[in-house]
């Protein structure tokens, strides 16, 4: 992989001037995934409906330097499968010479929920593409409704905290594990840490591994999570250090843990900066935090078993 300075010196493929919120995590994810593309290669981007789709391409302003396909909520996987197949045919006929890489972006709503069947199909057919989920754990674009990626007890507009509710009653599903069960050549889970070497190297592997690959990137949303906008790197760090959001990859079916904290921090460190979990710190709600911790511990133990750590 190119070193950090080289990667950051590459030309921008997602320009400024898009209308995502100040401090948006989704944009940080997309921008850094594209940094992993070799400058000489071109890309075709499909985007499931979401903040990223409606705010980065407001006709006639596009923030994308590469070819970009607007897409409905549910079919980014299918659209890109078709584009990739067409490319292969044209390349075979000698009508295209340049190298194109195929990348789909979707939020957790468009990936975990609504786009799930077309994603599953694209993975099973093993098209040569990457699907990148920027997971901010709710339908942020339409006003913070819960999704199947929303963590337990989070306050959202469809699971509002009040006298009869303590936030989302269910747990979140593990999409990276589900996609790994499709037996695709590469699955990676990452977020924003330090100089982004984890994200850049996983994006490069995902883009340049032949076949269907999947990246799950935790991308905090300051509006929906209600933390101070400038604290995004701290929130990500705490997600990793508490083992709420472990960094791992699955290469040809082999699970690899990329980071194991020396001291696993209590999950409160991750929950505390976020307004959506404020109610958990009220007197009498200690058992809810204990429950959250238990869930994190169980999943972490399971991951360690998968990775044979």
């Amino acid at each position: 992989m190119a070193n950090f300075k080289e990667i950051m010196s590459r030309p921008e493929r997602l320009t400024g001037g898009h209308r995502m919120c100040a401090g948006c995590g989704g944009t940080i994810a997309a921008r850094n995934v594209l940094k992993a593309l070799k400058p000489e290669d071109k890309a075709v981007i499909a985007n499931a409906t979401g903040c990223l789709e409606v705010s980065t391409f407001m006709y006639p302003y596009t923030a994308w330097k590469d070819s970009y396909i607007h897409n409905a909520f549910e079919n980014a996987g299918a659209t890109l499968s078709g584009a990739e197949t067409a490319y292969n045919v044209l390349k075979k006929k000698g009508k295209i010479n340049s190298t194109y890489k195929f990348i789909a972006f979707g939020g957790d709503g468009g990936t975990y929920d609504i786009g799930f069947q077309s994603l599953s199909g694209a993975m099973e057919r093993n098209h040569d593409l990457v699907y990148v989920c920027y997971d901010n754990g709710a339908y942020m674009n339409t006003g913070i409704q819960r999704s199947s990626a929303t963590p337990h007890f989070a306050d959202t507009t469809t699971t509002p905290v009040g006298s009869v509710s303590t936030g989302k009653p269910q747990n979140r599903k593990d999409l990276a594990e589900i996609i790994a069960s499709h037996h695709v050549p590469y699955v990676g889970q990452t977020t924003f840490i330090g100089n982004f070497s984890d994200l850049h190297s996983k994006a490069e592997k995902a883009i340049y591994t032949k076949g269907a690959t999947f990246l799950n990137i935790m991308a905090p949303c300051p509006r929906g999570w209600r933390y101070a906008t400038e604290d995004i790197m701290h929130v990500c760090k705490m997600a990793v250090e508490t083992c709420y959001w472990p960094l791992f990859e699955v290469i040809d079916g082999k699970w690899v843990l990329n980071y194991k904290p020396k001291t696993k921090l209590p999950v409160e460190e991750f929950l505390k900066p976020q307004g959506r979990f404020k109610h958990l710190f009220k007197k009498g709600n200690e058992d809810l935090i204990a429950q959250f911790q238990k869930e994190v511990d169980e999943r972490w133990e399971q991951l360690l078993r998968f990775c044979e750590e």
């Binding site: 100040a22 006639p60 596009t62």
Partner: peptide, 21 residues
């Protein structure tokens, strides 16, 4: 443009979001 397509990339670069600050 037909289909709402545009034929160049990175046009958002010309859009000022600096006044949001």
């Amino acid at each position: 443009t037909p289909g709402g397509e545009i034929y160049e990339g990175g046009t958002a670069d010309e859009f000022c979001t600096g006044d949001w600050r």
